[in-house]
Design a protein around this nucleic acid. Structure first.
Lengths: 331, 331
DNA sequence: AATACTAACGAAAACGATTTCGTAGGAGGA
DNA sequence: TCCTCCTACGAAATCGTTTTCGTTAGTATT
């Protein structure tokens, strides 16, 4: 493995100068800079990131914390989407992305072992003290869907999204609109519920607590079981607004099984707009959250924060109503 | 940040001895070993992985290569599943997992920059020369669904899976069984098709080329468009076997849209058994591939290989038929 | 008692970069 | 001419470990 010394020898300069060129310092003459760059390329020199990290105290590594308490792991499509966008953006900024597990020694220590420059907490269980320990440390963090002190946060405007959903259903003539809410421990769950309530008020519909159930997880099973309950009501809803697409699919399943037709007998609205739901039958009306923008913004904010710039502490990304076949005028 | 010197000073030994304790060498007396461990815990000493890597030439980092050419990225549930299992297992072996991007300098160089101990190529485009360059290097690799020279490979027994699917449909009386095949450039696509053909032969059904379409991607859109084509046939199939669950969902969509009933008019079988398909309507009959076992096995093999042990070059994991409501006796 | 081992430990040299600080030499100003 | 100020570069310390190899003291063997 050819090192920086060898390059220095070939160029007839010191290692200091080579290092300066590699990190584009200004204090090297153009002539020697060019000569060194040429040699570096010729011999295919690759700087050793361990050595670099050891002496510079920067690893160019970003940690990903992925708590899997609500079944929203890697397998939840929305989060894969923002993670993917985040990864792409930080890579273009020169970082690599490493998973941080909380096992054994906890998130903070793991981050310290790897000396990450910053971390992105994708999903979080706020009951997890290992996480607050990390947030309270010197390590730069960003989050989505997690509110903790002044940790920078980027996420979809859930409240506005709910308004879009309710207004849409109201325009279609629905008065009995049920909501399957996310766990109150999640920010998305709470805000979407708040938006739902405000939406009803705005549309002059009275709020009926029996039409709201708080689900335990963001999955399709939750939608299925909650919808079963709604269907047993003496006066079942004519529309249901689920807090995520996966859950909405569970709702659709329950409705079908009950012998009713989604989009005819009962309207269904989801949240997320994962790729799949445009191909289901009927295709799902949903609130699209722009995972690409969210991921990209998170990356930029974290990078800024690592470089000790002041950063926005809360950034909302607007949502959009996508109308498909699962909603229709009330019968 | 307290270092190994400080520990050594507190314990009244040299740094060499502390290092040996930390890496459990045998040549330290139990007494001093205990004393050192106690001090390490008391002061919360955390070894610096950069320094460690620099002098030991081991980073305890595993690279993940995730080529996204067929839309089977992070967002494809099956791969998230094996990745998740892989990650869990390597973490318990002491590694951390880092994403390797192919941008700019290529996979190989990126791996060399980070000095990864090994890499897991999750999905691969064999046309990508950056990838073969990596496979041909000294770096230890494992793969799933990619056959290249003698790179260790662990994956589901696709051939046997197809047999299970066809036999099941045959037992239900189906004779016109269509297949939506994966891209021939993928090993899974090819083997599932081979299994399909062998299954027909075994069941004494004549192979009809017009009942096979090769899809471009492993997604639901492919299933939708391919099924549309089948439905326009003068004599449409009574059953269709799709090469993955997402695609099967597209198939279901097309059938519904055509006014027919899945599980009554046409039977559908998928492949993967992603969490979602047990909650769709109707719930999907599918071939389950054990992503947990596949991921875990890959991890163990890579670890072995890193330690220069001889390893199995090809490991097949059996699949299982999961019968749900999307298949029924032929009308 | 002399010899040969072995167990337990330390001194010091890597590992491959970055970074501080010093210096030579040329340019410019008085 | 003398002094000051830059520019361009290098010497050497440093980052925090691992690892080799030597040393010492104690034990076993003859």
């Amino acid at each position: 493995m050819v090192g920086i010394r060898e390059i220095a020898r070939l160029a007839g300069v010191s290692t200091a100068t080579v290092s300066k060129v590699l990190n584009n310092y200004s204090e090297v003459s153009d002539a020697t800079k060019e000569r060194i760059i040429k040699i570096v390329e010729e011999v295919g020199y690759i700087p050793d990131s361990s050595a670099r990290a050891l002496s510079s105290k920067r690893t160019w590594l970003i940690g990903i914390v992925y708590s899997e308490h609500l079944n929203i792991g890697l397998e939840h499509n929305y989060f894969s989407g923002v993670l993917e966008a985040f990864k792409t953006e930080v890579e273009s900024l020169g970082y690599d992305v490493v998973f941080i597990s909380g096992k054994d020694i906890g998130y903070l220590k793991r981050c310290q072992v790897r000396n990450v420059d910053g971390v992105f907490v994708v999903t979080a269980d706020m009951m997890d003290t290992g996480l607050t320990e990390l947030f309270d440390s010197k390590i730069k963090c960003v989050t989505t869907d997690v509110l903790y002190k002044s940790i920078p946060l980027v996420y979809a405007n859930n409240f506005q999204g709910s308004l879009l959903a309710i207004r849409h259903l109201h325009e279609l003539g629905h008065k009995r609109i049920a909501h399957i809410a996310g766990p109150a421990s999640t920010i998305a769950g709470k805000e979407r519920l708040d938006g739902y309530i405000e939406g009803l008020r705005e549309c002059g519909i009275e709020y009926d607590p029996s039409l709201v159930i708080e689900a335990l997880e963001y999955d399709s099973a939750s939608g299925y079981t909650c919808m079963k309950q709604f269907l047993q009501l003496p006066n079942p809803p004519t529309a249901v607004y689920a807090m995520c697409d996966l859950t909405a699919l569970g709702v659709v399943h329950a409705i079908n099984e009950h012998g009713l037709k989604v989009g005819e007998d009962i309207s269904v609205v989801g949240f997320d707009d994962i790729e799949l739901v445009s191909h289901t039958h009927p295709a799902l009306t949903t609130i699209k959250q722009d995972s690409k923008t969210i991921g990209r913004t998170l990356a930029q904010i974290l990078h800024s924060s690592i470089n000790n710039n002041k950063v926005e502490t809360k950034t909302l990304i607007e949502t959009k109503l996508i109308v498909r076949q699962s909603t229709a005028p009330v019968k």
